[in-house]
Design a protein around this nucleic acid. Structure first.
Length: 472
RNA sequence: GGCGCUAUCGUCUAGAGGCCUAGGACACAGCCCUCUCAAGGCUGGUACACGGGUUCGAAUCCCGUUAGCGCUACCA
């Protein structure tokens, strides 16, 4: 039987990194096994679900390069089947009508508050006589449908955790159909997974306590449960559940920060999964080849932004300026920087080695393009203070020497040769000559080699900035 | 409270009884390279939660303790 997996987000918020990773694992497993990856939007919570959220989730998945072979299906469209399944269970005596109102339930809960055990529905409506039920129905009393939880052990062999076992008597008789005839999550999932012939349910750890309920539902409905694989949560750097106060947690935020989809995918894959051994950078094909459910970690993982950025830098350095051009231009446009007719690729090449994100690249390109974006940072100020009058004196000397290089010979090699000769002639250190140039050109003490920087900024623009620097 | 899950460097992890005086990566520190930085190379510190077993031998198996997390809805 061929593998069929699904990613089933509920559109009640943005696509967060935990969900993205779950999707990634589903997709990797499908690709690895030559199976089918299905996208199903679980929009049965109509109060919190929005179309905008659905769109954000779809966009996020596409950005990450996670494809689906079927769907997106919308769970809300399957209400009739969910209802039919609930009624079948009712007809077979595996479920019963519950006439308790929300207020009744609250009262029951309150009454049990002092007791040591947790509140559990006592099944009182399940003990109603047939005549009594009929009378209530005839009287038009609204009722929900409750599933009769079987007693005894319910266990399964989880693909990541191994055997997990619950006792039926610890579980509630759960409502499967609301009194307004809409389905409850646990029923809808099982009904859909059966209908879609899902073979492996790969989902977040937070669902393990739902699993025994769902297994019971599978059996009551006359189907074998699928293989379950519960992947652990992703935590913030304080060990707490990842949330907005940890900074970016939505995949769209990382897109905005200039993270590459391939790097994000690689990083997410390695959060809670390991191919075994020492590999870190895994191209898509290798990732698929190495993927296995057994390689998934049991314990939650902390999301380490520094490592993500390191990884992004690795991917960045492998990409050509050609490949980086479009995303960089997009970023520049957002910053309001345009350079019509200018080939930005040499600038990107010049700058990408010192960048960890597209945003870094764009910022540095912008500074080289537009003198108004040069802002002297703390290190730059420090250097100027340290050199004192030598700062502008050196600038003047360098500017003078550079001015003698004809435009046709404004090349990296020629500039470096002249600078070295100048340093030697004056008995100065090359660094003392060049650092002021770097600071005046970029505002910072960090950049590509100054001779390259001069080429990238251009002869006239460089000289203009240097001369302006001498005067201040 | 109940039920369940988890436990190797600060972080991500390798490790399926002897290969472990515990390996890699990020981060950190130092050195090399160098006009600065990044990259790269080298070096360094830091971990098997605790307590009992089982075994000739345990990071690896079992039990307990502790801690963390999840669920406990007519939410998903």
């Amino acid at each position: 039987m061929s593998v069929r997996v699904r990613f089933a987000p509920s559109p009640t918020g943005y696509l967060h990194v935990g969900g993205a990773r779950t999707a990634l694992f589903n997709w990797l497993y499908a690709r690895k096994m030559g199976g089918v990856h299905i996208l199903r939007i679980e929009d049965t919570d109509r109060e919190r679900s929005t179309e905008a959220h659905t769109q954000v989730i779809l966009d996020g998945l596409r950005w990450l390069g996670i494809e689906w072979d079927e769907g997106p299906y919308f769970q809300g469209a399957f209400g009739a089947r969910h209802r039919a399944d609930a009624e079948r269970l009712l007809a077979e005596g595996k479920a019963y009508r519950c006439f308790c109102t929300t207020a009744d339930l609250d009262a029951q809960r309150k009454a049990m508050a002092g007791m040591k055990t947790a509140f559990r529905y006592d099944g009182r409506c399940g003990r109603l006589g047939a005549a009594e039920v009929e009378a209530k129905v005839a009287a038009g009393t609204p009722s929900a449908i409750r599933f009769r939880m079987p007693q005894g052990e319910i266990a399964w062999d989880d693909a990541v955790h191994g055997r997990i076992s619950f006792q039926g008597h610890d579980l509630d008789d759960l409502v499967i159909l609301r009194s307004d005839h809409t389905p409850i999550y646990n029923l809808a999932v099982v009904s859909d997974d059966i209908e879609m012939r899902i073979t492996h349910v790969i989902r977040g750890d937070d669902h393990v306590s739902n699993t025994p309920k769902q297994i019971a539902l599978y059996r009551a409905l006359g189907h074998e449960p699928p293989v379950f694989a519960h992947v652990p949560m992703i935590l913030g750097d304080d060990g707490k559940k990842l949330s907005k106060r940890h900074g970016a947690t939505a995949v769209g935020d990382y897109q905005d920060k200039g993270i590459l989809p391939a790097a994000m995918r690689n990083f997410l894959a390695l959060l809670g999964w390991s191919p075994g051994g020492d590999r870190e950078i895994l191209p898509e094909a290798e990732m698929i080849a190495a993927f296995s459910l057994e390689g998934i970690q049991k314990k939650p993982a902390v999301f380490d932004t520094a490592k993500l950025e390191w990884m992004n830098g690795q991917y960045l350095s492998q990409l050509s300026a050609d490949a980086l051009l479009a995303p960089t231009e997009r970023e520049l446009a957002r910053m309001g920087v345009t350079a019509p007719g200018r080939d930005l690729r040499p600038l990107i090449d010049s700058v990408k080695a010192r960048s960890r994100t597209i945003l870094n690249i764009a910022e540095q390109v912008a500074v080289r393009l537009d003198p108004s974006r040069v802002v002297r940072d703390a290190k730059g100020e420090q250097l100027a203070a340290k050199l004192g009058t030598a700062f502008s004196a050196n600038l003047a000397v360098v500017a003078d020497a550079l001015d003698r290089i004809p435009a046709a010979e404004w090349h990296s090699d020629r500039i470096l040769a002249d600078m070295k000769a100048l340093a030697e002639a004056r008995g100065a250190k090359l660094g003392d000559l060049l650092q002021p140039v770097r600071v005046v050109l970029t505002g910072s003490t960090v950049s590509e080699p100054v001779n390259d920087l001069l080429v990238v900024v251009g002869r006239e623009e460089s000289l203009a900035r240097l001369n302006a620097g001498v005067r201040t």
